[in-house]
Design a binder for these strands. Sequence first.
DNA 1: TGGCGCGTTGACGTTTACGTCAGCCGCGCG
DNA 2: CGCGCGGCTGACGTAAACGTCAACGCGCCA
Lengths: 163, 163
Amino acid sequence: MAVELRRPERTFTIRQLCLEFKCTPRALRFYEDKGLLSPARQGLNRIYSYKDRARLQLILRGKRVGLSLAEIREILQLYGKGDGGAAQNAKALRRFRERIVAFEQQRADIDEHLAELREACSRLEAFLEKSAPDLLASAADLPTPPPSGRSSTDRRLASPRHA
Amino acid sequence: MAVELRRPERTFTIRQLCLEFKCTPRALRFYEDKGLLSPARQGLNRIYSYKDRARLQLILRGKRVGLSLAEIREILQLYGKGDGGAAQNAKALRRFRERIVAFEQQRADIDEHLAELREACSRLEAFLEKSAPDLLASAADLPTPPPSGRSSTDRRLASPRHA
DNA sequence: TGGCGCGTTGACGTTTACGTCAGCCGCGCG
DNA sequence: CGCGCGGCTGACGTAAACGTCAACGCGCCA
């Protein structure tokens, strides 16, 4: 075989992934415990491949939209079984469709919430414009006041999940 | 005042609301403990007004989109303070805007997930159509197989938020 | 040789959102 | 009069998703 394999045959340490995706080593090991990841080992140390990285991305996106780790694992398992029997694939298809309708429902919920929030904002804006335009201006600025503020784009959305 | 007050001056028992919204008395009392609801009392029994019902709706929608009860309570409190000082309203406005961007982010995440899922479905469909059309047909049916299946529309989406 | 930094494995603690259970109350009914 | 139903109040249990802490290994380097 040539020296060059497929694409990026890079590997990552646990800390590199943690920095990149803003999570902790504990979390990655936890996902491993739960069967969501299974990085190679060099002695005791974990070595994450590019595929592992991709899986991690999927895990985190899943979390952001409120999936439980168990659900994410299920999806990942189905995903990885592109080669499995046709029955497996049919099952995967069903699961995927279920997920789709669930997501659509969730999207609709969000849209309703957004509509309500926007309307409430309009009312508040109108009210403040009459009563205290200065406060209105201050409200337009700083998403979070300096004290204990992280960066501008603060993640922390669904955890929620959640339950 | 006339005998007729505003709109539906109806009240609800805890069980009525539970049936309507598919939740348990325990949950409603829990929300009350946490300050999300505060129904009137008739002796010891809880009497929920129409406003309480509306709040409950908001709570459940919030949960579905991955908000924690603490976040929901905060929003409800801001909501209820339409009369408060202008500073309060300005704060509310900021909070609402934060929520809006968070929801938009979450919506985008969901859209990405949906796109991926749809693509995966297409591939699976194409594959199955070639290899086992019968299974494909079976996959189109029953969202959940009879054993241990609830109703057709099974909620249980975000819970997560839990974290 | 000692110490620092990174990594590992348990093990226990924590928060959220309830479930479950025991015990008590008031009410209608046969 | 008993009792079953619906409701109430604690109090304890639980599952998910990690945080935290202790104790250890390994390479390096001054």
